[in-house]
């Protein structure tokens, strides 16, 4: 990281240039970033702590929280396994079509969440390609948990791989090579060498994936059917409450999600700092003669 490099005086901007630029940038950040964040909590606690607690304790809200945790508990581990496999494949082997594969892994980021939901409705919905077959066997995908999980997995698909690929690329495979030469099995090599090496990056990928899984709205909204207390996740519950003019209750549930986002941001910065420190330690030891 090159932050904090001291610049020669000739390149330092004069205060009459720096100060207005800083002020305009800060005003923009305050208006578009800080104000919305503060407002979520402001509106949630507008009518006091008791109203907030009542809104969170409402059975429908509790059911929404339970479903959201359940969906994340299935989709995050699935994408974790995929992310590690994809990063290992892309950074440790050379093969034809690798560039295409990397683009395909990123593909879900370019797809609108609404379309991510739509594709599963077209596949598994009552009028979809597999709709009749599923209906005959009384298997519910759309308007049920499997559809919500599928849509969530689709939307959060590339996140873990995206965090791991640059990290593993930078780390190289020397240690894994050493472990193999010393006779470690593939599993031991992965468990004792690779996993500790990528630990912090992996943790951040999982945290971000979890935050996005719990907060996904568009894709889940299309497949869930909005059945209260049954297929309603937290973001969908926020929408229902808001549209019923229960603004404070909507913001109470929203504040829980915003808190999750805040924790994610704090961890990201703590972990980013840790990764930067460990990699700079490594490079400084390598630089020694």
């Amino acid at each position: 990281m090159k932050r904090g490099v001291a610049r020669p005086p000739a390149l330092r901007d004069p205060w009459w240039l720096a100060l207005p630029l800083i002020l305009v940038a800060l005003a923009f950040a305050a208006l578009f970033l800080l104000l919305p964040l503060v407002a979520v909590f402001g509106y949630a606690f507008e009518k006091g702590w008791d109203v907030f607690v009542t809104a969170i304790g409402d059975p429908d809200a509790r059911e929404a929280i339970r479903l959201t945790v359940q969906v994340a508990a299935i989709s995050v581990p699935a994408n974790l396994v995929f992310g590690i496999a994809a990063a290992w494949l892309v950074t440790r082997f050379e093969f034809r079509g690798k560039g295409l594969l990397v683009s395909l892994i990123d593909l879900p980021f370019a797809v609108s969440p609404v379309i991510a939901g739509l594709v599963y409705v077209l596949l598994f919905g009552l009028h979809g390609w597999l709709g009749e077959w599923l209906a005959e066997r009384d298997i519910h995908v759309i308007f049920a948990l499997p559809g919500i999980v599928l849509a969530t997995v689709f939307v959060t698909f590339p996140i873990v791989a995206r965090e791991l690929i640059p990290l593993m690329q930078a780390q190289g495979d020397e240690e894994e090579q050493a472990a193999r030469t010393l006779g470690a099995s593939g599993f031991t090599m992965f468990w004792r060498v690779t996993l500790p090496k990528i630990g912090w990056g992996l943790l951040y990928g999982v945290i971000l994936c979890n935050a996005r899984a719990m907060g996904e709205f568009g894709a889940v909204s299309v497949v869930s059917g909005h059945i209260r207390g049954l297929t309603n996740t937290m973001p969908l519950h926020v929408e229902i409450l808001y549209n019923e003019y229960q603004s404070t209750a909507a913001f109470a549930v929203a504040a829980l999600l915003a808190l999750l986002a805040l924790v994610t941001l704090v961890l990201k910065h703590a972990i980013g700092w840790r990764i930067a420190r460990t990699t700079s330690d490594e490079s400084s030891t390598e630089a020694r003669p």
């Binding site: 800060l26 950040a29 970033l33 800080l34 104000l35 919305p36 964040l37 407002a39 979520v40 509106y43 969440p113 971000l208 935050a211 996005r212 719990m214 907060g215 996904e216 709205f217 568009g218 937290m234 973001p235 969908l236 926020v238 929408e239 808001y242 603004s247 909507a250 913001f251 929203a254 999600l257 915003a258 999750l260 986002a261 805040l262 994610t264 941001l265 704090v266 990201k268 910065h269």
Partner: peptide, 28 residues
Amino acid sequence: PGRGFIDALVDLPFALPTAVAGITLTAL
């Protein structure tokens, strides 16, 4: 002062669920 805080805050739109952003911006 506050540079690190603003830097961290830039990621907020990635992490904040879109529905939360939606109702908050509307209320504002």
